[in-house]
């Protein structure tokens, strides 16, 4: 199959249109962050830099970002470990109940957030009797983040096969050594991709968070929810969103560089 110039052109145009639609609402957010209207009405009646100034003085927003980063980082780490273990087990072994395990991994993301949320809320409070806190959010997030790591890692493992590992073992390397020097480097970009998606998923999660966060735990989405209801705070929320989008380029770019580099060497 060779795509004609025309086909390539059409595909490119369609891609362009899709990207335009993807960025249209983000442009609205950007413009509204300068709007004089506190209710984000369109078109903006006037422009101002006030919200940008106020956003950077907002301790609440900064704390919320830090809380969210902290939760997302730990949840991602946990899901990286658990997701890798499961993928290795499922890919390298055939055993009874293998399908059930893969279903179990998918379930927390496949079932709607509100169900995961109320189930965990109920379990934490009435079964385990623990106070909702930042830890309960982390546990909840890690649970549904495992799947993104699992998806990426198992796809990579399937492609890799086991020959390098066997060679390593034949040369006398132990299991840990083999994992550290042979398996892990080959998984690195898959882990990065899975981890990045897990981080994003956790960072923006609101439904499960609502049900598992202690009253004092304010993640960024919860802070945003609160502030959309405070008089004249809505434009500040837009500023935060714009900043986040801009800041997010860095980790995505780094991940891309690493993944891209590996592809070149293959």
């Amino acid at each position: 199959m060779r795509l004609s110039r025309l086909a390539r052109g059409i595909l490119g145009a369609v891609t362009g249109v899709i990207l335009l639609v993807i960025y249209l609402p983000l442009m609205v957010v950007l413009v509204n962050s300068f709007s004089t209207s506190t209710s984000l009405v369109w078109p903006p009646p006037g422009l101002t830099l006030e919200w940008w100034g106020r956003a950077f003085q907002s301790e609440g927003a900064l704390e919320a970002v830090l809380t969210s980063v902290q939760i997302a980082l730990i949840a991602t780490l946990v899901s990286l470990v658990l997701g890798t273990l499961i993928s290795l087990a499922l890919q390298r072994f055939a055993f009874f109940g293998r399908e059930a395990v893969s279903l179990l991994v998918i379930l927390p993301i496949a079932l709607p957030g509100i169900i995961t949320g109320i189930a965990l809320n109920n379990a934490f409070r009435t079964i385990l009797g623990v106070q909702l806190s930042i830890a309960t959010v982390i546990v909840a997030h890690a649970t549904f983040c495992i799947v993104t790591v699992f998806n990426n890692v198992i796809a990579r493992l399937r492609r890799l096969g086991t020959s390098y590992e066997e060679a390593s073992a034949d040369l006398g390397a132990g299991l840990w050594t083999t994992f550290r020097l042979v398996t892990f480097p080959q998984l690195r970009s898959a882990l990065l991709a899975g981890g990045l998606l897990a981080f994003a998923l956790s960072f923006d999660e609101i439904i499960v968070t609502t049900f598992t966060a202690g009253a004092g735990v304010k993640t960024l989405p919860i802070w945003i929810l609160d502030n959309l209801f405070r008089p004249s705070q809505a434009p500040i929320v837009n500023v935060i969103a714009v900043v986040l989008v801009l800041v997010s380029i860095v980790p995505i770019y780094i991940a891309q560089r690493i993944a891209g580099a590996e592809k070149v060497s293959r």
Partner: peptide
């Protein structure tokens, strides 16, 4: 490859603009 990288970034970036902010943006649109 270069454009591929840029496009992946372009697709991933909106993920970081909070869900609520995007929903309200559509309300406005």
């Amino acid at each position: 490859p270069r454009w591929q990288r840029i496009l992946v970034i372009a697709v991933l970036m909106p993920l970081w603009a909070s869900y609520l902010v995007k929903a309200y943006a559509w309300r406005s649109v």
